[in-house]
């Protein structure tokens, strides 16, 4: 087991751990909007770490380029999908749970 293998294993395991924690947050958080943040962690850091770990295994090859392309697509598309969903939920009048009265707009209704 070389040092590269060890580094790759570390990245893959950490990425998997981040994914599990993020999915746990998806179950734990109280309302839709805060769950989106938990889903966001698995969309970004988890994907980055796992694809980085695989890239260390692939070395400088076509497979590494494909992994980079997958990461690029995920990074471009995931915020768009998240925003589209959150916007649709807001348009449909789903109220965000707010902790106290400091926020200036705590209703989901359209002005």
């Amino acid at each position: 087991m070389t040092i590269l293998d060890l580094l790759s294993w570390l990245c893959l395991t950490l990425g998997g751990l981040v994914g599990v924690i993020g999915a746990f947050g998806l179950l734990r958080f109280p309302d839709f909007y805060s769950r989106q943040h938990a889903a966001g962690t698995t969309d970004t850091l988890c994907a980055m770490l796992i694809l980085l770990g695989l890239g260390l295994q692939a070395g400088l090859s076509l497979a590494a380029f494909k992994l980079a392309a997958i990461l690029l697509f995920l990074i471009i598309t995931s915020p768009v999908a998240t925003h589209a969903l959150a916007n649709a939920a807001r348009q449909s009048g789903l109220k965000a749970l707010t902790s106290d009265d400091t926020s200036d707009d705590n209703s989901g209704s359209k002005p």
């Binding site: 990425g15 993020g22 999915a23 769950r35 889903a39 994907a47 694809l51 695989l54 939920a89 789903l94």
Partner: peptide, 22 residues
């Protein structure tokens, strides 16, 4: 809500991509 379900499906799909890569 139905948005929670879609968000979960979105996460499912993203993780499926990673699963296929691994």
């Amino acid at each position: 809500t139905v948005f929670d379900r879609i968000a979960a499906i979105n996460l499912f799909g993203t993780k499926t991509v990673l699963l296929i890569a691994v």
